[in-house]
């Protein structure tokens, strides 16, 4: 893992108008950096804005405010067609629902080769077929599957087709939007291991969105915890698990079950009450310890520092 920043998100905001006067602040000013070659985990409860963050970064939604820089270049705002195409190649996405993410009227070959055709990466049909076969092999499927339709595959197989589609354009950065939450546990491990292996082979960088903390810990180098459109804590994954500071992170961690009866009998689940916070000032994102950031007020900041020193 290098210290080179691949993606810089600064004060990103995404507000949706739901009526004439009501606005949903799905993302409310978040900032983080993702380094080249790392896996950045993004966790949080349902509806806290994780998926919206991913989709806004890849420009499926137009951001209300804020910057997203990819390799030092701003990727939002008006862009020329060729710039956009370049950006589309560099950044790809794996989707949550393997049943909804593949067009039921297209064969696997058509699905995987769509990116190849859009970006003109193959000269003729022979090269296209060859590339599709290679990609299928990369994700552990047979080349005989190329002419089949998606409904013939299982959830895990479909998710791997989705991964092959994303890989077809040789991306550097992949946003994995809860890629395993719709799969059963044995298949989850298969897909996560495939993602890890691909990262090693191709030097990919991931933004891994999930709500399953144990899986996120397994795959991520750094983890950000989101709550109601804000990142409340950001740290290396080991640090976050060892020293959770924000009460919401603590609550999340206390909810992880372990297959250990002794531990389970004594596990105390702490609940999170947003009213417990210090309300004397607007909380800010502060670095409590190198590389460990928490959303807190000055008072809380001092308290957290003391807590870490103990």
């Amino acid at each position: 893992m290098s210290e080179e920043k691949l993606l810089e998100v600064t004060n990103l905001k995404q507000h949706f108008k739901t009526g004439r006067h009501s606005v949903v602040k799905a993302i409310d000013g978040i900032s983080f950096d993702i380094y080249k070659g790392e896996t950045f985990g993004l966790v949080g409860e349902s509806g806290c804005g994780k998926s919206t963050t991913g989709r806004t970064i890849i420009r499926l939604y137009d951001a209300t405010d804020g910057d997203v820089k990819f390799n030092g270049v701003d990727v939002h705002g008006k862009k020329s067609k060729s710039d956009l195409k370049m950006f589309n190649r560099k950044m790809q996405m794996i989707f949550q629902d393997p049943y909804a993410s593949l067009n039921p009227r297209m064969t696997v070959k058509e699905i995987i080769s769509e990116g190849l055709d859009i970006h003109g990466l193959v000269k003729d049909d022979k090269a296209r077929t060859q590339r599709v076969h290679d990609l299928l092999e990369t994700v552990g499927l047979n080349k005989e599957h190329a002419n089949r339709y998606p409904h013939e595959f299982s959830g895990g197989q479909r998710q791997r087709i989705g991964i092959a589609r994303a890989l077809a354009v040789d991306p550097e950065f992949i946003i994995a939007d809860e890629p395993i939450s719709a799969l059963d546990v044995s298949i989850q491990a298969q897909v996560v291991n495939l993602l890890k292996q691909l990262q090693k082979e191709k030097g990919l960088t991931y933004l891994f969105i999930a709500h399953d903390l144990s899986m996120v810990k397994y795959i991520s180098d750094r983890i950000a915890v989101m709550y109601f459109g804000k990142i409340v804590e950001l740290a290396d994954s080991d640090e976050l698990y060892k020293n959770p500071l924000h009460p919401y992170t603590k609550s999340l961690l206390s909810a992880i079950p372990l297959p250990d009866p002794d531990y389970e009998r004594n596990r105390v689940r702490t609940s999170y009450d947003p009213a417990d916070h210090d309300t004397s000032e607007v909380p800010e994102f502060r670095e409590v310890r190198p590389k460990h950031w928490v959303l807190c007020t000055t008072k809380e900041f001092d308290a957290y520092k003391k807590q870490l020193a103990e």
């Binding site: 890849i58 499926l60 790809q92 996405m93 949550q96 909804a100 993410s101 769509e114 589609r165």
Partner: peptide, 28 residues
């Protein structure tokens, strides 16, 4: 708003392509 349409957009499909290749065939 199905994910396969979003996927086509992230791959860089233009509107015509999405309409003709992804949406209309599913309504045939």
């Amino acid at each position: 708003n199905q994910e396969f349409v979003l996927a086509a957009r992230t791959l860089g499909s233009n509107d015509t392509r999405i309409l003709m290749k992804h949406l209309i065939p599913n309504v045939t």
